[in-house]
């Protein structure tokens, strides 16, 4: 190390004590200095806007007027009576349930297969690739793949004798289709997180289970799943919270080419798209803030419930 010079070595004894104490005493200031830029950004772009959004939710804030008057709980009362708000919540919940169901089961299967079959980074890399692509690109890609007339998927379906489907053009199929697209994008990423968790499980446990005559299926339920619990809880929180906030995909892939996002007939009007529309298309920023405040509380509850029910912060291994 360059710092260690002959002179420094000579003064070693003396410096060791005084320098150490000086540093200890001044650490509060040093910390403040190190935290300055991040703290500034945090206060300005996280803390302050969060408080401001909360205040806005009690006003009729308008983005064009750039001001709003205090209206008390008016926004929240409006929200309770807003059919479209409840509709969008329902659509979002449907989407989340289908998405998370498919994604988690598939990812778990993929993670176990990777764990048992191969250490190949190429396999893991290929599976995680869709996660790296912008969601906008993913949306456009599947809009094309699922095009009712020219899309590849319908062509393949017709080849195996199933008739063409409307997919994103059908009010009944649009939500499951979106959930499937999102699964395609996230399943590899989720599998990789779970795979990392699988690596933590001591191999001796499987040997012991095998010695006691347990088969693959039994080992999965009795060893893998219980010991994967903390990682599974984290993955579920990440994916459920993320799934609730779907926006880019719906904004790009729904309503057909040149159509209004959220279509057909509001069948894919997820809560993010509705909030966005209220704030930036209808200039109801106050109302949009109230809806996002409700969403915030809802997501915090979901996080808490998942962590609680899976006891996610404690491991059985410790």
């Amino acid at each position: 190390m360059a710092i260690v010079s002959a002179r420094a070595a000579r003064q070693h004894q003396h410096r060791a004590s005084s320098g150490w104490r000086r540093l200890r005493r001044s650490q509060g200031w040093v910390a403040a200095l190190f935290l300055l830029p991040a703290g500034f950004g945090f206060a300005l772009f996280y803390l302050w806007p969060a408080l401001r959004a909360l205040w806005m939710s009690f006003t009729d804030y308008n983005l064009l007027r750039r001001s709003g008057d205090f209206t008390g709980l008016e926004n929240y009362r409006q929200l309770v009576d807003d059919q479209l708000f409840w509709h969008s919540m329902w659509v979002t919940v449907q989407y989340v349930v289908i998405n998370i169901g498919m994604q988690t089961v598939l990812a778990l299967a993929m993670a176990v297969m990777m764990d048992r079959l191969t250490r190949s980074v190429i396999v893991r890399g290929v599976l995680v690739l869709p996660w790296l692509i912008p969601q906008v690109v993913v949306g456009l890609l599947w809009l094309w793949m699922l095009d009712p007339r020219l899309g590849l998927v319908n062509h393949l379906l017709e080849m195996v004798g199933i008739g063409g489907q409307a997919f994103l053009g059908s009010p009944d199929q649009a939500v499951p289709t979106l959930a499937a697209i999102n699964t395609w994008r996230f399943v590899g990423y989720t599998a990789l997180l779970l795979f990392a968790g699988l690596q933590m499980i001591p191999k001796q446990l499987y040997e012991a289970a095998a010695m006691d005559g347990a088969g693959e299926w039994r080992m999965f339920w009795r060893v893998t799943l219980p010991l994967l619990r903390p990682v599974l809880a984290l993955v579920l929180v990440l994916s459920v919270v993320g799934s609730f906030q779907v926006f880019d995909l719906v904004q790009v892939a729904t309503g057909g080419i040149g159509g209004q996002p959220g279509g057909p007939a509001n069948s894919t009007l997820v809560i993010y798209v509705y909030i966005f529309r209220q704030a930036f298309n209808f200039n109801q920023a106050g109302y949009a803030a109230a809806m996002s405040a409700v969403l915030f509380v809802l997501l915090a509850c979901v996080t808490f419930l998942i962590m609680r029910s899976l006891r996610g912060s404690r491991s059985d291994l410790a």
């Binding site: 906030q245 704030a279 803030a289």
Partner: peptide
């Protein structure tokens, strides 16, 4: 702050 949904702070950030 990890729990804050981005849409919650997008509106005030836009105003700011």
């Amino acid at each position: 702050a990890l729990l804050i949904p981005p849409v919650f702070i997008v509106i005030p950030n836009f105003v700011l």
